Computed example of a mutant assay.
Amino acid sequence: MKRHLVCLSHTPLKGHVDPLPEVVAEVGDAVAQLRAEVERFEPELVVLFAPDHYNGFFLDLMPQFCLGVAAQSVGDFASRPGPLDVPRALAEACAEAVVADGIDLAVSWRMQVDHGFAQPLEELTGALDRHPVLPLFINSVAPPLVDFRRAREFGAAVGRFLRNLDQRVLVVGSGGLSHNPPVPQLRSAAPDVAERIIAGRNPTPEARQARQARTIAAARAFAAGSNELRALNPDWDRRFMRDIETRDWSALDAYRNDAISADGGASAHEVKTWVAAAAAFDAATAGAGALRRRYYRAIPEWVAGFGAISSAP
């Protein structure tokens, strides 16, 4: 089969607030197995669905879906800065096909991406630019948010574009699972924070470091038992992963945004990247190919339910 799927959690806290060494090793082993599968697959193109955390997309203009015709990693936390290898003609063709398929897709010729894009590229391929990549952003933090159904329709439109592409394509969904980190909301933000999430592009190194330090401090407090952040929800994580694994589209379409926030946390909306990626794989393969859960653990130190699903190698 010329299509392979990996859905994988990301966290900016690796190396900053780590769980016990055996848990770090366990996650490392799971990621290493996925990377080995990707290397054996030898992708000629990576189609990457990922969110942003007010590092590349801001409230001055927040699209629900955006395709980067050119993209640059900002290098937040431990992720590398630098350009992604975006094949422009193919990206333009994908955008035209997806819009013609009924999806209101934005296009960026200067997309900035953060660890949500960079981490899976680095962990699964070893570099930002080892393979050509189509970077596909899904808004997961700024209301109003699309629902699972619309994320599925977006992914399916991308998958129909991929169906006749004569290349080995790795489809990746990056994000989730349950987590509720201290991402600011406009309605409750102080004026300086509100300005940062409205128009905070290209902060100074000092400003970026200060923001990252606040996130690390919140994670340390959460891991120590602070209840200021919503608890992780392994039951919700496992139910969602089961619905993805079985591609139960009717069950996934029935998820409601308010319930996702209540049960999984405000940032659990990142799993819409998994929904879109699985739908793209499903459409690109006409439903062929089994999916299976590869890893799951609730990891408070990383403020995340951490999991992985992939297609059978």
Rank of each mutant, 00 (worst) to 15 (best):
A194P: 02
V133E: 01
Y255Q: 11
R196M: 13
E22S: 14
R163Q: 13
H53E: 05
L45R: 12
N180W: 12
G28I: 05
A298G: 12
G68R: 06
L128R: 08
V98S: 02
N139L: 09
D85S: 13
V17T: 15
P234V: 06
V172M: 07
I244K: 08
N257H: 03
A213I: 00
R242F: 01
E22H: 14
G159L: 06
G264E: 10
A199S: 14
V133F: 02
R247W: 13
D235G: 12
N202I: 05
Q72K: 07
D243P: 01
A254L: 07
S9W: 08
R242M: 11
G264W: 07
S310I: 00
D263F: 09
A224K: 11
I244P: 02
V99F: 00
H53S: 09
A100R: 15
A286I: 00
D237M: 06
D76G: 09
S140E: 00
A127S: 15
R208E: 14
L165W: 03
G175M: 04
A224H: 08
T215V: 15
A157M: 04
S73F: 05
P19K: 11
E228F: 10
G175H: 09
A190S: 14
R130C: 07
H131Y: 14
L105R: 02
T204M: 03
P181I: 07
V183I: 15
A286K: 07
S108A: 13
D243G: 01
Q212D: 15
A89D: 15
L165H: 07
D147I: 02
W236L: 03
L162S: 08
G289A: 10
L20D: 15
V17G: 01
G75C: 05
A290P: 05
G155D: 04
N233H: 13
A199W: 00
A93K: 14
E22I: 05
N180I: 00
G126P: 11
R152W: 03
P81C: 06
E92R: 14
F41E: 02
R110F: 06
D192R: 13
G289F: 06
P234M: 08
R168Q: 05
I103H: 01
I138K: 09
V171R: 00
V275G: 01
T204E: 08
L59I: 01
D282V: 07
D248R: 11
L229Q: 14
A199V: 00
H115R: 10
V31M: 09
D248I: 09
R297I: 02
G68E: 04
H10C: 05
I299V: 15
Q33T: 11
R220I: 02
G102A: 05
A279T: 04
R168T: 02
A91D: 03
E42Y: 00
A259I: 12
A254Q: 09
V31I: 15
A217E: 14
Q64N: 13
K14R: 15
G176C: 10
A262M: 09
P132H: 07
A262N: 02
P120A: 10
P205V: 04
I138G: 08
R80G: 00
V271Q: 01
T11D: 06
W302F: 11
